[in-house]
Design a protein around this nucleic acid. Structure first.
Ligand SMILES: [Mn+2]
Ligand SMILES: [Mn+2]
Ligand SMILES: [Mn+2]
Ligand SMILES: [Mn+2]
Lengths: 234, 234
DNA sequence: TTATAAATTTAGGTTAACCTAAATTTATAT
DNA sequence: ATATAAATTTAGGTTAACCTAAATTTATAA
């Protein structure tokens, strides 16, 4: 049996299990990235069979965390979105804490946060937020939602879309692959680092850039996962 | 399904589930407090029916975490003891961390640690130990086992056994009741606090003591849960 | 020493969250 | 328009960890 950490009954809300929280969080993420959320996209993301996902969706629809149009897709209700943002907040606050206080590297923290987001009490969420001075981004540059579900996205675009001559600043790096994060920092890229784009290679779409006065070639895959803002147009 | 956080396979050891870890930890605690561990004492402690406990014991005996003499009781194997101490270490390190870094009070931390002890990775255990400067007691004065299972108990006795005229120092307070902890600190008792015993009341076994120059009466129940060492005999 | 009481184990059943295989619905390509 | 393919749902089954009730073993008290 999985027992929730707080009282499982809270007026009308029933505490969600760890697995249910993972479903909700990932539905939120898929919908804000791709728009529509299907059984198969969730199945793919959670690495759970489509049949199991379909079952769980039915259950979540019954308890009004989301709406389900059979064979079409799902959408979180307001209640569901609120829950999702709360889980994401805990995840990102905890990542920040791991980096700032326990000196983990940004490529080591996602797995830890993936578990801890479900365990963290509201009290602890507050204390961590306080100790960190109410940060608004996590170590990968992702925005940390406020306690009541506001989320402010920074305006950034994938570096792959930048043009030669530009100077850009790194605002976010996709946290989906820890090896990518490790590599990215090994070539000197951190949040807020400034980068000059020298050349775009037509044969493979890679970029020739200058970081810390050194020229480096960045593959298109990597350039798609680094999000920047423009500092200087040419 | 409960999925363990690390690889569930580690050469020959299979990662224990959260519930199994709770069984193991509490068997260890019962055996070091009472000596023998029976189905009913465990059932009582874990608040799980004797039937379920009996089943689980059978399972743990099969995988050699403990030995079981049916109708008699259980005893942890060396392997089991090691595991228990590791969980206790994580629990107590985390309690220390909550108090020192997140400024929780000593009466707020047990529930948090109860969940976190199962979630903490070995890496995190190390980082926390390091940030805290390798503490050897937790916020309640309980010893923190080393990573390889050494545990050094301080020599202390329940304050109820002290005699008028003595000066004692608080080395440990039982963490089993958070209201007791809250009350104890409200009357000025913390770890290392010095207390002078003035009188022992014969009618109810309570103690009249001096703390911070103030006279206070301490009930026998409380005096049984505060552990001290003698500083001055008379 | 035997009868009753207490502790323990076994039997049979539930629930959440998964799975594979089969059935159904929707999409796509001639 | 229809046949095939893909996506989704339903059916039926598993496992861990619990439960209550019944059976068994051990302890205790007349
Ligand atoms: Mn998670
Ligand atoms: Mn992140
Ligand atoms: Mn626990
Ligand atoms: Mn403690």
């Amino acid at each position: 049996m999985i027992r929730a950490h707080a009282d499982t009954t809270n007026k009308e809300t029933i505490m969600a299990s760890e697995q249910i929280e993972n479903y909700i969080k990932n539905i939120y993420k898929l919908s804000s990235n791709e728009g529509k959320v299907t059984t198969s996209s969730l199945s793919e993301k959670l690495q759970i069979s489509p049949a199991s996902v379909s079952e769980m969706i039915k259950k979540l629809a019954e308890e009004r965390t989301l709406t389900h149009t059979p064979y079409k897709g799902v959408e979180l209700t307001e209640e569901g979105k609120k829950l999702a943002l709360r889980i994401i907040r805990k995840h990102r606050l905890w990542e920040m804490f791991l980096v700032e206080v326990l000196h983990f590297r940004w490529d080591e923290i996602d797995d830890e946060a993936e578990r801890f987001e479900h365990i963290m009490s509201d009290t602890m969420e507050e204390k961590i937020d306080h100790v960190l001075g109410h940060p608004n981004i996590d170590p990968h540059g992702d925005p940390i939602p406020t306690r009541d579900g506001e989320i402010h996205c920074t305006m950034s675009y994938p570096m792959i879309e930048s043009h030669p001559g530009m100077r850009v600043r790194v605002l976010r790096v996709s946290d989906s692959n820890s090896d990518l994060l490790k590599y990215v920092s090994s070539i000197g890229i951190t949040l807020n680092k400034q980068i000059r784009i020298k050349q775009k290679m037509s044969f493979d779409n890679s970029l020739l850039v200058v970081i810390n006065k050194k020229e480096i070639n960045i593959s298109s895959t990597i350039a798609e996962n680094i999000f920047v803002e423009t500092i200087e147009k040419e």
